[in-house]
Simulated assay, not measured.
Amino acid sequence: MTTTFDKIKTIIVDQLDVEETAVKPETNFENDLDADSLDLFQIINDIEDEFDIVIDTEEGLITVNDLVAFVDKEATK
C-alpha cells in the first residue's frame, strides 16, 4: 500500500529533480530542497490532481510532513 508520504515524495522528486533520499518528513522545502514559490506551486498542483483535493494556500506548508498532514486531513473530509 502506498502512503500519502510516498505519493508526495514521488511528486517532489519528479518536480525538483532531487534524490529520493533527500525527501524525508522533516525536510524543509526552502532550506533543504532550495524550492522557490513556483516549485511549491507546481508540487501543490500535482498533489491536488493526485489526491483530488484543493489546497488554497501555501501558508504553513514548510516541511514535507506539513504537506502530508494537510493532505491527509483534506482527504478524509
Rank of each mutant, 00 (worst) to 15 (best):
M1K: 12
M1F: 10
M1W: 09
T2H: 04
T3G: 08
T3H: 06
T4R: 06
T4N: 10
F5D: 12
I8F: 04
K9E: 08
T10E: 13
I12K: 00
L16Q: 00
V18C: 13
E19L: 14
E19G: 12
E19N: 15
E20S: 15
E20A: 15
E20I: 05
T21D: 14
A22S: 15
A22R: 14
V23T: 02
K24H: 06
P25S: 04
P25W: 00
E26W: 03
T27E: 08
F29K: 07
N31F: 06
N31I: 07
D32Y: 10
D32I: 10
L33G: 04
L33T: 07
L33I: 04
L33Q: 05
A35W: 02
A35K: 00
A35N: 02
D36M: 01
S37R: 14
D39I: 04
D39R: 00
Q42T: 13
I43F: 09
I43C: 11
I43H: 07
I44P: 04
I44Q: 00
E48Y: 08
D49C: 04
F51V: 08
I53E: 12
I53A: 05
I53Q: 09
I53S: 09
V54T: 13
I55K: 02
D56S: 11
D56R: 07
T57L: 10
T57F: 09
E58S: 15
E58Q: 15
E59I: 13
G60H: 05
L61H: 00
L61I: 14
I62E: 15
N65L: 05
L67P: 08
V68R: 00
V68F: 01
A69N: 13
A69C: 05
V71M: 01
D72E: 15
D72Y: 05
K73Y: 11
K73A: 11
E74L: 12
E74T: 13
A75F: 01
A75M: 02
K77M: 07
K77V: 07
